[in-house]
Amino acid sequence: MTATLSTETRELTYVKAFNEGLAQVMRSDEDVFLAGEDVAGYGGVFHMFDGLLGEFGSRRVVDTPISEAALVGMGVGAAARGLRPVVDLMFMDFLAVCLDQVVNQAAKMKYMFGGAVSVPLTITTASGAGLGAAAQHSQSLEAWLAHVPGLKVCMPATAYDAKGLIVAAVRDDNPVVVMLNKVLLGARDVVPAEIYEVPLGAARVVRQGEDVTIVALGRMVTEAVRAAEELAGAGVRAEVIDLRTVQPLDMTTVLDSVRRTNRVLVVHEAVTFGGIGAEIAAQVQDEAFDYLDAPVLRIGAPFAPVPFSPVLERAYVPDAARIVAGCRRLLERG
């Protein structure tokens, strides 16, 4: 659970909260610097880094050439030498351009050097569909990263978590990928003014219930809450869990819930096939099979590229209606 904070709170957007958390951790540690394409003068394509150049100057907020491989490679080297770089990939899809640096260098270096080297590297990126950005700028690829030992992967669903997770990521001594959801950038939440961390690997029970568990990631947390509210009108009490991070994965919170509700639905924006929902379903089957009154159900995107057409894109991304329908299927099978 997140520690109670005593300072003032106010309402911030998701992107402003992220920006504030990064600025605060940069103030607290001079070894932290930011690098990426258009992060300095422009403040990032989604304005995640507005104002940082003016406060920290061009030595700590650095625009780079359009080369994700060079950018992440630089970050790995800087981290191994004792700095705490934050490198921005702009769009999640660009991960494919620098997979070697992420998977074979950042993730493996501590192991390859027998623990003598730490890689406190933070990679920030924007993921998900919903803005009509088409197939090469709209993917959710968290399952790729969660499969790699040595990496940690965060997916904040609220402004509160966007701030707390970026602080925790930068302070961690391992490479951490922070995936911000593009559709959530303007979402508002009450956020403390002081610096704080949201622990990596600690899920949050967003809404308590007794009839079915909905496990959600990123933007799907909002859809899951909407679904739970609709189900409540029909007398169904759905529990909603926000995983917050997919690596490490907080299965303790999930399993505790499943043992009470006896039914579980996992929803993510990524393609259903091979998604993190499959891992959660497998672990639930292993650890809580005797408690299940119905098979684990997964909801995700179809096995297809993200469409450019707004109409098709809306049909592609899971929503509250599909979650409600899934929960009703689970209840009927129990």
Rank of each mutant, 00 (worst) to 15 (best):
G218R: 00
G218T: 01
G218F: 01
R219Q: 09
M220C: 11
V221T: 12
V221N: 11
E223W: 05
E223R: 10
E223L: 02
E223C: 03
A224H: 09
A224G: 15
V225M: 06
R226T: 14
R226I: 02
A227N: 10
A227K: 09
A228Y: 04
A228F: 02
A228Q: 06
A228N: 07
A228R: 04
E229F: 00
E230A: 15
L231K: 05
A232Q: 13
A232M: 04
G233A: 08
G233L: 08
G233K: 13
A234N: 10
V236K: 03
V236R: 02
R237F: 00
A238Q: 04
A238I: 02
A238V: 03
E239F: 01
V240H: 11
V240D: 12
I241M: 09
D242Y: 10
D242V: 12
R244K: 12
R244D: 07
R244E: 05
T245Y: 04
T245W: 02
V246C: 00
V246Q: 00
V246W: 00
P248D: 10
P248A: 05
L249S: 07
D250R: 07
D250S: 11
D250L: 04
M251I: 13
T252K: 13
V254F: 05
V254A: 11
V254H: 07
V254E: 09
L255E: 13
D256Y: 04
D256S: 12
S257A: 14
S257V: 00
S257N: 11
V258R: 08
R259M: 12
R259N: 10
R260S: 12
R260G: 10
R260L: 11
T261Q: 10
T261L: 05
N262H: 15
N262F: 03
R263M: 01
V264Y: 02
V264C: 14
L265Q: 11
L265W: 06
V266H: 01
H268M: 05
E269C: 02
E269N: 05
E269G: 08
E269A: 05
V271C: 09
V271F: 09
